[in-house]
Computed example of a mutant assay.
Amino acid sequence: MKLKDKVAVVFGGTSGIGEATAKAYAEEGAKVVVSGRDAEDGDRIVKAIKDKGQEAIFVKADVTDASEVKQVVDTAIETFDHIDILYNGAGIHDKYKSAVEVEEEEYEKLMAVNVKGPYLASRAVIPHFLERGGGTIVNVGSQATHVAGPGGSAYVTSKHAIEGFTKQLAYDFGEKGIKANLIAPGFVDTPMTEGIEDERLNDIPAKRAGKPEEVAALAVFLASEDSSYMHGSTVTMDGGWVTGR
């Protein structure tokens, strides 16, 4: 029960790693606010959590819309009194398009979800953290945080950017009790990686894809007091893929 009596807001919580993280937070004692664009999946996940006797609600939101993001934060506070953990896990891929292949509209949409979304959520939650004297932010990067190749021009740019954003959050707010760190998952078996060629596994020393639950366990560690001396860190979980690049 590493998160007993904590309240966690999980953006991008309706599938993949986000879903696994929401459930893992609940297992560790947190009250969870699951947010995403798919109400059907959101309700399914909340039901699964409640069926175990744990607490959760779903709030539908588009992370690129500041008013909807704020509504999630406001609802979390109205329902559970406060927020302790912000998990920014919403993300989309660009199907490996180069700078000359990706359309401007596609580029702007991806950057809005992958970079602007965490900014809007952090901006909405940090004043509350400051009032309470602290809080935790867990952002989600990728192998593409470190190197080119795991995505196209827009995706790689966004995942490099989120690392810089995380470092700046730690720099600006660490002394005020706010801990911000980044998870950089590798090839994980989620809807985002569905259909990507299995040959990629040959480049991974672990010789397999990761499981959402494995990344969720890391998200629990970064949200807990066990990582209290980690500020602005990027933690890679990719089966060794980056190591061999």
Results as ranks from 00 to 15, higher is better:
residue 53 G to P: 10
residue 48 A to L: 14
residue 60 K to L: 06
residue 32 V to A: 11
residue 52 K to V: 00
residue 41 D to T: 10
residue 45 I to Q: 02
residue 62 D to H: 10
residue 67 S to V: 13
residue 38 D to G: 01
residue 87 Y to T: 09
residue 52 K to A: 12
residue 34 V to L: 08
residue 72 V to E: 04
residue 69 V to C: 13
residue 73 V to M: 12
residue 44 R to K: 15
residue 83 I to R: 01
residue 60 K to H: 07
residue 57 I to D: 08
residue 32 V to Q: 12
residue 56 A to L: 04
residue 68 E to Y: 02
residue 55 E to M: 11
residue 65 D to R: 14
residue 79 T to E: 14
residue 63 V to F: 03
residue 39 A to V: 14
residue 78 E to N: 14
residue 89 G to Q: 10
residue 45 I to V: 08
residue 45 I to E: 00
residue 43 D to V: 14
residue 37 R to T: 13
residue 32 V to Y: 10
residue 81 D to F: 03
residue 70 K to E: 12
residue 70 K to Y: 00
residue 54 Q to E: 15
residue 74 D to T: 14
residue 71 Q to I: 00
residue 89 G to I: 04
residue 63 V to N: 04
residue 68 E to Q: 15
residue 59 V to L: 08
residue 53 G to C: 07
residue 85 I to S: 08
residue 39 A to T: 13
residue 38 D to M: 06
residue 84 D to I: 06
residue 76 A to P: 06
residue 51 D to Y: 03
residue 52 K to Y: 01
residue 38 D to T: 13
residue 53 G to V: 12
residue 56 A to R: 11
residue 58 F to T: 08
residue 68 E to V: 02
residue 76 A to I: 08
residue 46 V to Q: 04
residue 81 D to V: 01
residue 82 H to N: 12
residue 33 V to A: 08
residue 77 I to R: 12
residue 41 D to N: 15
residue 39 A to G: 00
residue 78 E to D: 15
residue 34 V to K: 06
residue 52 K to I: 05
residue 77 I to E: 10
residue 65 D to L: 10
residue 59 V to S: 01
residue 43 D to N: 15
residue 31 K to W: 03
residue 28 E to C: 11
residue 84 D to F: 09
residue 80 F to P: 09
residue 32 V to W: 07
residue 50 K to P: 00
